[in-house]
Amino acid sequence: MEVTQKNIENIRKRYLRYLKLQRGMSPNTLDAYARDLDKLLNYLDGIGLHVLDVELSDLQHFAAGLHDIGIGPRSQCRILSGVRTFYKFLVLDGYIEQDPAELLESPVLGEHLPEFLTPAEVDQLKDSIDVSKPEGHRNRAIIEVLFSCGLRVSELVNLKLSDIYRDEQFVRVFGKGSKERLVPISSTALREIDNYWSWREELKIKPGEEDYLFLNRRGAHLTRTMILIMLKQQAEEAGIQKTISPHTLRHSFATALLEGGADLRVIQALLGHESIATTEIYTHISSQTLRQTILEHHPRNMRK
Protein backbone atom coordinates (compact mmCIF):
# COMPACT_ATOMS: atom_id res chain seq x y z
CA MET A 1 0.00 0.00 0.00
CA GLU A 2 1.08 3.59 -0.50
CA VAL A 3 2.50 4.89 2.77
CA THR A 4 1.56 8.51 3.48
CA GLN A 5 1.97 10.65 6.59
CA LYS A 6 -1.71 10.04 7.34
CA ASN A 7 -1.14 6.29 7.18
CA ILE A 8 1.80 6.58 9.55
CA GLU A 9 -0.33 8.52 12.03
CA ASN A 10 -3.03 5.83 11.80
CA ILE A 11 -0.40 3.15 12.47
CA ARG A 12 0.81 5.12 15.49
CA LYS A 13 -2.74 5.37 16.88
CA ARG A 14 -3.41 1.65 16.34
CA TYR A 15 -0.12 0.79 18.06
CA LEU A 16 -0.88 2.92 21.12
CA ARG A 17 -4.40 1.47 21.27
CA TYR A 18 -2.82 -2.01 21.17
CA LEU A 19 -0.52 -1.14 24.08
CA LYS A 20 -3.41 0.21 26.11
CA LEU A 21 -5.99 -2.49 25.43
CA GLN A 22 -3.93 -5.60 24.75
CA ARG A 23 -0.88 -4.95 26.92
CA GLY A 24 -2.79 -3.11 29.66
CA MET A 25 -0.26 -0.30 29.98
CA SER A 26 -0.85 2.56 32.39
CA PRO A 27 -1.21 6.14 31.08
CA ASN A 28 2.31 7.04 32.27
CA THR A 29 3.88 4.02 30.55
CA LEU A 30 1.83 4.68 27.43
CA ASP A 31 3.10 8.28 27.29
CA ALA A 32 6.69 7.05 27.58
CA TYR A 33 6.23 4.56 24.72
CA ALA A 34 4.63 7.28 22.58
CA ARG A 35 7.53 9.68 23.17
CA ASP A 36 10.08 7.00 22.34
CA LEU A 37 8.21 6.02 19.16
CA ASP A 38 8.11 9.65 18.10
CA LYS A 39 11.91 9.77 18.33
CA LEU A 40 12.07 6.97 15.76
CA LEU A 41 9.39 8.47 13.51
CA ASN A 42 11.08 11.88 13.52
CA TYR A 43 14.41 10.27 12.66
CA LEU A 44 12.90 8.34 9.75
CA ASP A 45 11.09 11.43 8.51
CA GLY A 46 14.40 13.32 8.60
CA ILE A 47 16.12 10.81 6.34
CA GLY A 48 13.09 10.36 4.08
CA LEU A 49 12.43 6.74 5.01
CA HIS A 50 8.96 5.32 5.65
CA VAL A 51 8.40 3.29 8.77
CA LEU A 52 7.34 0.16 6.83
CA ASP A 53 10.46 0.21 4.64
CA VAL A 54 12.97 0.10 7.48
CA GLU A 55 15.81 -2.46 7.57
CA LEU A 56 18.02 -3.54 10.45
CA SER A 57 20.86 -1.26 9.32
CA ASP A 58 18.52 1.76 9.49
CA LEU A 59 17.60 0.93 13.09
CA GLN A 60 21.28 0.45 13.95
CA HIS A 61 22.01 3.94 12.63
CA PHE A 62 19.10 5.26 14.71
CA ALA A 63 20.53 3.53 17.79
CA ALA A 64 23.98 5.01 17.13
CA GLY A 65 22.38 8.45 16.82
CA LEU A 66 20.88 8.13 20.31
CA HIS A 67 24.39 7.79 21.68
CA ASP A 68 25.66 10.67 19.60
CA ILE A 69 23.10 13.13 20.99
CA GLY A 70 24.01 12.22 24.56
CA ILE A 71 21.21 9.85 25.58
CA GLY A 72 22.50 7.53 28.33
CA PRO A 73 22.77 3.73 27.98
CA ARG A 74 19.81 3.01 30.23
CA SER A 75 17.54 5.37 28.28
CA GLN A 76 18.86 3.92 25.02
CA CYS A 77 17.84 0.45 26.22
CA ARG A 78 14.33 1.67 27.02
CA ILE A 79 13.92 3.39 23.64
CA LEU A 80 15.21 0.40 21.67
CA SER A 81 12.99 -1.95 23.67
CA GLY A 82 10.04 0.19 22.53
CA VAL A 83 11.26 0.00 18.93
CA ARG A 84 11.34 -3.79 19.11
CA THR A 85 7.82 -3.83 20.58
CA PHE A 86 6.59 -1.53 17.80
CA TYR A 87 7.91 -3.72 15.00
CA LYS A 88 6.55 -6.85 16.63
CA PHE A 89 3.17 -5.11 16.54
CA LEU A 90 3.61 -4.28 12.83
CA VAL A 91 4.23 -7.96 12.09
CA LEU A 92 1.34 -9.05 14.31
CA ASP A 93 -1.05 -6.61 12.64
CA GLY A 94 0.01 -7.60 9.12
CA TYR A 95 1.74 -4.36 8.10
CA ILE A 96 5.04 -6.14 7.39
CA GLU A 97 6.16 -9.76 7.03
CA GLN A 98 9.71 -9.60 8.39
CA ASP A 99 10.69 -7.94 11.66
CA PRO A 100 13.72 -5.69 11.04
CA ALA A 101 14.20 -5.09 14.78
CA GLU A 102 14.51 -8.77 15.69
CA LEU A 103 18.32 -8.62 15.83
CA LEU A 104 18.55 -5.03 17.07
CA GLU A 105 20.88 -4.98 20.08
CA SER A 106 20.81 -2.66 23.06
CA PRO A 107 23.94 -1.27 24.77
CA VAL A 108 25.36 -3.45 27.54
CA LEU A 109 24.64 -2.02 30.97
CA GLY A 110 26.90 -2.45 33.92
CA GLU A 111 25.33 -3.97 37.01
CA HIS A 112 23.51 -1.29 38.97
CA LEU A 113 22.63 -2.08 42.56
CA PRO A 114 19.82 0.15 43.81
CA GLU A 115 20.24 2.05 47.07
CA PHE A 116 18.41 0.69 50.11
CA LEU A 117 17.97 1.49 53.78
CA THR A 118 18.38 -0.86 56.71
CA PRO A 119 15.43 -1.16 59.13
CA ALA A 120 17.42 0.97 61.59
CA GLU A 121 17.82 3.71 58.95
CA VAL A 122 14.08 3.59 58.20
CA ASP A 123 13.43 4.13 61.93
CA GLN A 124 15.97 6.96 61.88
CA LEU A 125 14.11 8.55 58.98
CA LYS A 126 10.75 8.27 60.75
CA ASP A 127 12.08 9.45 64.12
CA SER A 128 13.44 12.64 62.56
CA ILE A 129 9.90 13.77 61.69
CA ASP A 130 8.42 16.51 63.87
CA VAL A 131 4.97 15.12 64.70
CA SER A 132 3.90 18.48 66.14
CA LYS A 133 3.66 19.72 62.54
CA PRO A 134 0.34 19.12 60.75
CA GLU A 135 1.70 16.57 58.25
CA GLY A 136 4.03 14.85 60.73
CA HIS A 137 1.99 11.72 61.43
CA ARG A 138 0.96 11.51 57.77
CA ASN A 139 4.60 11.48 56.65
CA ARG A 140 5.48 8.80 59.21
CA ALA A 141 2.60 6.70 57.89
CA ILE A 142 3.76 7.19 54.28
CA ILE A 143 7.28 6.01 55.09
CA GLU A 144 6.03 3.01 57.06
CA VAL A 145 3.55 1.91 54.36
CA LEU A 146 6.22 2.19 51.66
CA PHE A 147 8.67 0.14 53.72
CA SER A 148 6.17 -2.38 55.13
CA CYS A 149 4.35 -3.08 51.85
CA GLY A 150 7.02 -2.40 49.18
CA LEU A 151 4.67 -0.25 47.10
CA ARG A 152 5.59 1.78 44.06
CA VAL A 153 5.01 5.49 44.66
CA SER A 154 2.25 5.48 42.01
CA GLU A 155 0.54 2.68 43.95
CA LEU A 156 0.86 4.61 47.21
CA VAL A 157 -0.67 7.86 45.94
CA ASN A 158 -3.62 5.90 44.53
CA LEU A 159 -4.16 3.78 47.64
CA LYS A 160 -7.78 3.99 48.75
CA LEU A 161 -9.41 3.52 52.14
CA SER A 162 -11.58 0.85 50.53
CA ASP A 163 -8.40 -1.06 49.56
CA ILE A 164 -7.36 -1.56 53.20
CA TYR A 165 -8.60 -4.74 54.90
CA ARG A 166 -7.71 -4.07 58.52
CA ASP A 167 -9.02 -7.31 60.03
CA GLU A 168 -7.12 -9.45 57.54
CA GLN A 169 -4.12 -7.02 57.51
CA PHE A 170 -3.95 -6.82 53.72
CA VAL A 171 -4.05 -3.99 51.22
CA ARG A 172 -5.30 -4.32 47.66
CA VAL A 173 -2.87 -2.75 45.21
CA PHE A 174 -3.33 -1.90 41.54
CA GLY A 175 0.08 -2.04 39.89
CA LYS A 176 1.38 -1.61 36.37
CA GLY A 177 -1.23 -2.35 33.72
CA SER A 178 -3.91 -2.16 36.46
CA LYS A 179 -2.86 -5.61 37.67
CA GLU A 180 -4.30 -6.31 41.11
CA ARG A 181 -2.42 -7.95 43.96
CA LEU A 182 -2.88 -8.36 47.72
CA VAL A 183 -0.01 -7.33 49.98
CA PRO A 184 0.17 -7.84 53.77
CA ILE A 185 0.33 -4.66 55.82
CA SER A 186 2.08 -4.66 59.18
CA SER A 187 0.48 -3.71 62.47
CA THR A 188 3.12 -0.95 62.71
CA ALA A 189 1.91 0.57 59.44
CA LEU A 190 -1.72 0.36 60.55
CA ARG A 191 -0.81 2.06 63.83
CA GLU A 192 0.92 4.89 61.95
CA ILE A 193 -2.21 5.30 59.79
CA ASP A 194 -4.32 5.50 62.96
CA ASN A 195 -2.03 8.23 64.33
CA TYR A 196 -2.46 10.19 61.08
CA TRP A 197 -6.25 9.77 61.08
CA SER A 198 -7.16 12.56 63.49
CA TRP A 199 -5.43 15.16 61.27
CA ARG A 200 -7.06 13.71 58.15
CA GLU A 201 -10.53 13.96 59.68
CA GLU A 202 -10.09 17.72 60.18
CA LEU A 203 -9.43 18.33 56.47
CA LYS A 204 -11.98 19.77 54.09
CA ILE A 205 -11.76 16.99 51.53
CA LYS A 206 -12.36 17.79 47.86
CA PRO A 207 -15.32 16.04 46.18
CA GLY A 208 -14.17 12.78 44.62
CA GLU A 209 -11.08 12.54 46.85
CA GLU A 210 -12.81 11.10 49.91
CA ASP A 211 -11.57 7.53 49.40
CA TYR A 212 -7.87 8.36 48.95
CA LEU A 213 -5.80 7.47 52.00
CA PHE A 214 -3.06 10.11 51.86
CA LEU A 215 -4.16 13.72 51.39
CA ASN A 216 -2.51 17.14 51.38
CA ARG A 217 -3.63 20.18 53.38
CA ARG A 218 -6.12 21.11 50.66
CA GLY A 219 -7.88 17.77 50.89
CA ALA A 220 -6.60 16.35 47.59
CA HIS A 221 -4.60 13.15 47.16
CA LEU A 222 -0.83 13.49 47.00
CA THR A 223 1.32 13.42 43.87
CA ARG A 224 4.48 11.41 43.32
CA THR A 225 6.52 14.62 43.27
CA MET A 226 5.22 15.69 46.68
CA ILE A 227 6.32 12.40 48.22
CA LEU A 228 9.74 12.53 46.54
CA ILE A 229 10.36 16.05 47.88
CA MET A 230 9.21 15.08 51.37
CA LEU A 231 11.52 12.04 51.51
CA LYS A 232 14.56 13.96 50.28
CA GLN A 233 14.01 16.72 52.83
CA GLN A 234 13.45 14.19 55.62
CA ALA A 235 16.58 12.22 54.73
CA GLU A 236 18.60 15.42 54.99
CA GLU A 237 17.09 16.21 58.39
CA ALA A 238 17.76 12.64 59.54
CA GLY A 239 21.42 12.90 58.51
CA ILE A 240 21.14 10.00 56.05
CA GLN A 241 23.80 10.41 53.35
CA LYS A 242 22.25 8.00 50.85
CA THR A 243 20.26 9.24 47.87
CA ILE A 244 16.66 8.67 48.92
CA SER A 245 13.52 8.29 46.80
CA PRO A 246 10.23 6.42 47.25
CA HIS A 247 11.78 3.53 45.29
CA THR A 248 14.54 3.32 47.92
CA LEU A 249 11.96 2.15 50.45
CA ARG A 250 10.62 -0.42 47.97
CA HIS A 251 14.16 -1.74 47.54
CA SER A 252 14.57 -1.73 51.33
CA PHE A 253 11.40 -3.82 51.70
CA ALA A 254 12.63 -6.46 49.25
CA THR A 255 16.16 -6.56 50.66
CA ALA A 256 14.89 -6.96 54.22
CA LEU A 257 12.70 -9.88 53.14
CA LEU A 258 15.50 -11.62 51.27
CA GLU A 259 17.96 -11.22 54.11
CA GLY A 260 15.27 -12.54 56.46
CA GLY A 261 15.09 -15.75 54.40
CA ALA A 262 12.04 -15.09 52.18
CA ASP A 263 11.78 -17.02 48.91
CA LEU A 264 12.53 -14.98 45.78
CA ARG A 265 9.23 -16.05 44.19
CA VAL A 266 7.32 -14.70 47.18
CA ILE A 267 9.15 -11.38 46.91
CA GLN A 268 8.35 -11.30 43.18
CA ALA A 269 4.63 -11.71 43.93
CA LEU A 270 4.66 -9.06 46.68
CA LEU A 271 6.43 -6.54 44.44
CA GLY A 272 4.20 -7.28 41.46
CA HIS A 273 7.15 -8.05 39.17
CA GLU A 274 6.12 -9.72 35.94
CA SER A 275 9.51 -11.40 35.53
CA ILE A 276 11.64 -13.12 38.19
CA ALA A 277 14.68 -11.60 36.47
CA THR A 278 13.62 -8.17 37.75
CA THR A 279 13.50 -9.49 41.31
CA GLU A 280 16.89 -11.22 41.09
CA ILE A 281 18.68 -7.88 41.48
CA TYR A 282 18.07 -8.24 45.22
CA THR A 283 20.24 -11.36 45.37
CA HIS A 284 23.15 -9.14 44.34
CA ILE A 285 22.30 -6.61 47.06
CA SER A 286 22.17 -9.36 49.64
CA SER A 287 25.50 -10.80 48.49
CA GLN A 288 27.05 -7.35 48.70
CA THR A 289 25.76 -6.93 52.26
CA LEU A 290 27.08 -10.35 53.29
CA ARG A 291 30.49 -9.57 51.81
CA GLN A 292 30.68 -6.27 53.70
CA THR A 293 29.70 -8.03 56.93
CA ILE A 294 32.54 -10.52 56.49
CA LEU A 295 35.04 -7.77 55.71
CA GLU A 296 34.04 -5.83 58.82
CA HIS A 297 33.54 -8.60 61.36
CA HIS A 298 35.49 -11.76 60.42
CA PRO A 299 38.63 -12.11 62.56
CA ARG A 300 40.81 -12.75 59.51
CA ASN A 301 39.85 -9.31 58.17
CA MET A 302 40.05 -7.32 61.40
CA ARG A 303 43.24 -5.36 62.09
CA LYS A 304 44.83 -5.90 65.48
Rank of each mutant, 00 (worst) to 15 (best):
168 E>S: 10
146 L>P: 01
84 R>Q: 10
171 V>C: 06
66 L>I: 10
79 I>C: 09
243 T>M: 07
271 L>G: 00
120 A>E: 12
188 T>V: 15
134 P>Y: 15
176 K>Y: 15
217 R>N: 12
151 L>D: 00
147 F>R: 09
116 F>K: 01
115 E>M: 05
5 Q>A: 14
97 E>C: 06
6 K>Y: 15
138 R>D: 01
103 L>T: 06
88 K>E: 12
60 Q>V: 09
196 Y>H: 00
43 Y>C: 11
124 Q>C: 14
154 S>M: 04
114 P>V: 02
300 R>M: 08
20 K>H: 14
17 R>Q: 14
117 L>F: 07
187 S>F: 12
104 L>F: 00
254 A>Q: 05
209 E>K: 13
224 R>G: 08
276 I>H: 12
50 H>T: 13
116 F>N: 00
243 T>W: 03
270 L>T: 05
250 R>W: 05
109 L>C: 07
185 I>N: 03
200 R>W: 03
44 L>K: 05
223 T>E: 03
266 V>M: 10
89 F>I: 01
35 R>W: 12
269 A>C: 08
237 E>K: 13
127 D>F: 05
146 L>H: 02
207 P>H: 15
8 I>D: 11
260 G>W: 02
205 I>D: 11
41 L>V: 01
121 E>A: 10
179 K>E: 10
205 I>K: 09
228 L>T: 14
219 G>H: 04
112 H>M: 09
167 D>V: 12
41 L>N: 03
12 R>F: 14
207 P>L: 11
107 P>V: 11
118 T>M: 08
93 D>I: 09
190 L>H: 06
293 T>R: 05
100 P>Q: 01
236 E>L: 12
82 G>H: 09
284 H>S: 06
32 A>C: 08
286 S>G: 08
18 Y>R: 07
234 Q>I: 14
154 S>P: 05
284 H>R: 09
234 Q>K: 12
229 I>C: 07
221 H>E: 13
284 H>Y: 07
64 A>Y: 05
92 L>T: 14
216 N>I: 15
177 G>V: 08
286 S>V: 08
90 L>N: 02
273 H>E: 02
204 K>N: 13
137 H>F: 15
107 P>D: 06
64 A>L: 10
138 R>I: 03
46 G>K: 09
262 A>H: 05
292 Q>C: 00
245 S>P: 01
303 R>G: 03
210 E>R: 10
215 L>C: 11
29 T>D: 08
264 L>D: 04
287 S>F: 00
34 A>M: 06
224 R>H: 13
18 Y>D: 06
11 I>S: 08
212 Y>D: 12
272 G>T: 07
